[in-house]
C-alpha cells in the first residue's frame, strides 16, 4: 500500500534525525567563526549531540554512529591522533547511558550539570592522552577553557536539538 510505504519513509526520516543532527553538529565545531582564537576554544558541538541523544534516544544513536562521528571529527580537524575523539565520545555515551535514570524527568539544571561533568571528563582524557603522547605536560588552560565554553554553550545546542527532537514524533506520526 502506498500509504504505509509513505509512513515507512517518514518513519525512516524521523529515525535519521539523531544521526543527522550529530553529523551537522560535528561539522559546526569546525567552522571558522570570526571570534579571536575561536579555533582553540571552539565548543564541542558533537559532544552536545551525543549527550542529548544518549539521554533521550540512545536506540537511535548506536555506538557505531558515535564512532563514525568521532572519527569524522578527528579526520577533519587534522589531529595526529585519529580515534581520540571517537574514544572520548564513546566513553561519554557509555557513562551517560549508565546514569540515564538520573537525567530523566529532572530539571534542565541537572542535565546541564551532567553535561558539564561529561565534558570535563572528555577533555581531561584528551589532555592526558595528548600530554602522554607528546611526552610533555600540555598547558591545561586551553582544555579548561574549552570545557567551560562547551558547557556554557550547552543550552543553545540543547535547544536546537530539542527542536529537532520535537519534530521527530510529528514526522513519524
Amino acid at each position: 500500500m502506498p500509504y504505509s510505504r509513505n509512513r515507512d519513509y517518514v518513519g525512516f526520516v524521523a529515525r535519521m534525525v539523531p544521526g543527522t543532527t550529530t553529523f551537522l553538529f560535528t561539522l559546526l565545531s569546525l567552522l571558522p567563526f570570526p571570534v579571536p582564537s575561536f579555533g582553540s576554544i571552539a565548543p564541542s558541538f558533537a559532544l552536545m549531540a551525543v549527550f542529548h541523544w544518549t539521554v533521550y534516544r540512545p536506540d537511535l544513536l548506536p555506538p557505531g554512529a558515535v564512532f563514525v562521528a568521532g572519527l569524522l571529527l578527528d579526520l577533519l580537524n587534522g589531529t595526529p591522533y585519529v580515534g581520540l575523539s571517537a574514544l572520548a565520545l564513546l566513553l561519554v555515551r557509555t557513562a551517560v547511558l549508565n546514569q540515564r535514570r538520573i537525567f530523566s524527568h529532572r530539571p534542565f539544571s541537572v542535565l546541564w550539570l551532567g553535561f558539564f561533568g561529561a565534558t570535563a571528563g572528555a577533555f581531561a582524557l584528551e589532555w592526558a592522552f595528548v600530554s602522554l603522547m607528546q611526552v610533555e605536560f600540555l598547558a591545561p588552560r586551553p582544555f579548561v577553557f574549552q570545557t567551560l565554553i562547551t558547557a556554557a554553550c550547552f543550552p543553545i545546542g540543547s535547544y536546537v536539538l530539542a527542536l529537532a527532537h520535537r519534530a521527530m514524533p510529528a514526522l513519524s506520526a
Binding site: 565545531s29 567552522l31 579555533g39 582553540s40 580537524n77 589531529t79 600540555l138 577553557f145
Partner: peptide
Amino acid sequence: VIADSGGAFLHNIL
C-alpha cells in the same frame, strides 16, 4: 579559511 581545527591542542586551518 574554510575550517578551523577546533581543538585545545590543535592549531591548524583548512
